[in-house]
Design a protein around this nucleic acid. Structure first.
Lengths: 187, 187
DNA sequence: GTCTATAATAGGATAGAC
DNA sequence: GTCTATCCTATTATAGAC
């Protein structure tokens, strides 16, 4: 009886990469099998609920992955430094604009209703991070909320337009603008 | 021999709606057949290249649909009025945030490479409309380009985040902000 | 130009050996 | 825990009648 070839988190990482690259509907079990190096039956052993369960667990895995990033926003750095760090992490996570967002891919899926709740939660915590930064920088609550929403909107849009135009510069310019303006009084 | 039940443009309209709702990978021929009211064989009669050809022609159909909207930007109204009109058209086209963008859906498809060129062109003409408005409002070329890019980024992102959070208010707030700030000197 | 019927294939999922 | 083999359904696509 072979020992597990990799940890569950490693499997989830690879599944996430596959969903981000091919989309939920576009990622076949054959592809997921290839990407993880596990046979279809092994995948079903780990995820009896099939592709749907895989996606749900990948979402939870993403949240676990990002938690320390968001938690680091509670240290003692000034808000500017925190924003710079957060946007660096965002840029790295999206491969500087080359890699799509898991949330967007799942929003667009045929089974989207199955993912609605976790998607809402993931978007909320993403926005929450920016909102906290804006508050710390002295913005009133309403303004902080609006800017946080706008930040996530622009990140998602930057990824879409980068993919659509084949120009990752769109995403990079979007992040640069956020870095320079998100916390400004007249932003 | 039955006469054609609807024009090709009507068929393309319905195919576009199906792709926007289900995504390219998620829209099966059975679904496309149901949506258009045409049997699968009729669809293949009109589009021998199958789903891929349908999507390519739907993209061209979208461009034809938008051409008069963009052309109307060359009339004599002041830039503010033109922007308001354009954003009204955008809002209507996206069902106030309820209906996804065709371009985004095709960017995310398995056959995306087949659509890369027309997608790039569609994004360019979309941005071009905003760029022209910004120029007319007196912004220098570089600023006009940057704002046009940002406008399309925010529209696409607003749709994604609206879908992800289940709150079309995100999209509506995004458009409102564009309406108020896109042409401002200190935008 | 549209339909019914059918082929051919890919996809999701399961059984059972090891 | 993983594999090979298999099943079943959905999906793409075609043939041929009307």
């Amino acid at each position: 009886m072979p020992a597990p070839l990799m940890t569950r988190e490693e499997v989830l990482d690879r599944l996430m990469a596959a969903f981000r690259k091919h989309g939920y509907d576009g990622a076949s079990l054959a592809e997921l099998s290839k990407r993880t190096g596990l046979g279809k039956s092994s995948l079903y052993h780990h995820f009896p609920g099939g592709k749907e369960q895989m996606a749900v667990e990948v979402l939870a895995h993403l949240d676990r992955t990002l938690r320390p990033v968001f938690a680091s926003l509670s240290d003692g750095r000034p808000p500017d430094a925190k924003l710079a760090g957060l946007l660096d992490a965002v840029s790295a996570f999206y491969g500087d604009g080359k890699v799509a967002c898991l949330l967007e891919r799942l929003c667009a899926s045929a089974d989207r209703s199955r993912f609605a709740r976790p998607l809402r939660a993931s978007f909320a915590s993403f926005m929450g991070a920016f909102e906290q930064l804006c508050r710390e920088a002295g913005l009133p609550l309403a303004a902080a909320r609006a800017r946080a929403e706008s930040a996530v909107v622009r990140i998602e849009g930057g990824l879409v337009v980068s993919a659509g135009t084949g120009d990752t510069g769109v995403f990079q310019r979007t992040l640069r603008d956020l870095r320079e303006r998100l916390l400004r009084r007249d932003g």
